[in-house]
């Protein structure tokens, strides 16, 4: 691979690269072999452990995936409701922040900073423990949704804000010049464009939401989503069947999450590429929005 750091590799550089490639391949093969030996030595390669999850011919296969599927549906449901609520509230927050007078703006900023600084697992736990204590009894799904929404709506508000900030000033100046009010400028000119350019960031945030639904398993009592369904399967096999398959089961869970989120990530990339091609005018004038910046969210949640 040529890089800006190097000139195009000559014969010696190419030979070195080849040597390192071989060394790396050997090392990689060694690690894989070691892992397989280690798995085998601990009896983790038994078909009894993999079959129920990965072999359609296995007697348990259908039942296992049926219960996993039920859990996955709950996960998708929670993520979808959260996305809709967080988008709505996040938009309202960004509107409030934009249109309010400085006297009130600090209030919105305060709420945003407060919720953004909390771990999402704390907001979910807070919802699931404090709401019942205050007499608000809801189905467990809603504790998860409320906790997730509280965190993600402020992230979405921030994404929209950086989207608005990335628009050329001429957009709002022109709108003001034709006599629009501050709210009209926002609703008719700025927000629609901000949504468009920040769509990839919003999809990335959806990945975060999907991942974070798994926290419902940790801190919301009696809530059966994907990870808990997996856990129930593990307990079933560990109990009545005497087969310990946590490794295999969690690998399957990870694979499902990776498939979902990888596709969402690719979708975000695709939209990003497409819109940056079609809307050169906007993208060139403005600083392109920095996605990493758009949410601590995209950081490492």
């Amino acid at each position: 691979m040529s890089s800006v750091l190097y000139d195009a590799p000559g014969p010696r550089a190419r030979r070195n690269t080849l040597i390192f490639t071989v060394i790396a391949l050997v090392a990689l093969a060694g690690v894989v072999a070691l892992a397989i030996v280690q798995l085998g030595r601990n009896g983790q390669l038994d078909s009894a452990k993999w079959g129920p999850i990965f072999n359609p011919g296995n007697q348990y296969f259908l039942a296992v995936w049926k219960s996993l599927g039920t859990g996955l549906l709950v996960t998708v449901e929670a993520a979808a409701i959260t996305l809709v609520l967080a988008l709505a509230i996040g938009t309202v927050l960004s509107v409030l922040r934009f249109t309010s007078t400085p006297a009130y703006r600090w209030l919105v900023v305060g709420v945003v900073e407060l919720l953004r600084g909390l771990p999402v697992v704390i907001t979910i736990y807070f919802a699931s423990r404090v709401l019942p204590e205050l007499g608000v009894k809801l189905p467990p799904l809603w504790y998860l949704v409320i906790g997730l929404t509280a965190y993600n709506c402020v992230i979405i508000a921030e994404i929209l804000r950086s989207g608005i900030a990335a628009l050329p000033r001429g957009q709002s100046e022109a709108a003001y010049a034709v006599g629009m009010s501050r709210f009209q400028v926002l609703r008719l000119i700025l927000l629609p464009q901000a949504f468009r350019i920040m769509l990839p960031a919003l999809i990335s945030q959806l990945v975060v939401i999907v991942k974070d639904t798994s926290l419902g398993f940790l801190v919301v009592a009696g809530f059966s989503e994907f990870v808990r369904a997996a856990n129930t399967v593990i307990q079933f096999f560990g109990g009545s069947e005497g087969i310990n398959l946590p490794l295999q089961m969690y690998l399957a869970v990870a694979i499902v999450f990776i498939l979902i989120n990888y596709s969402l990530g690719k979708l975000a990339e695709y939209i990003d590429r497409r819109s940056s091609r079609s809307k050169k005018a906007v993208a060139d004038v403005a600083t392109p929005p920095v996605l990493v910046d758009a949410g601590i969210g995209r950081g490492a949640d």
């Binding site: 991942k211 798994s214 990870a254 999450f257």
Partner: peptide, 12 residues
């Protein structure tokens, strides 16, 4: 690691 939940990583 970026596409799987931290919870699942921790379980493994």
């Amino acid at each position: 690691f970026r596409n799987s939940p931290l919870v699942v990583t921790l379980f493994i």
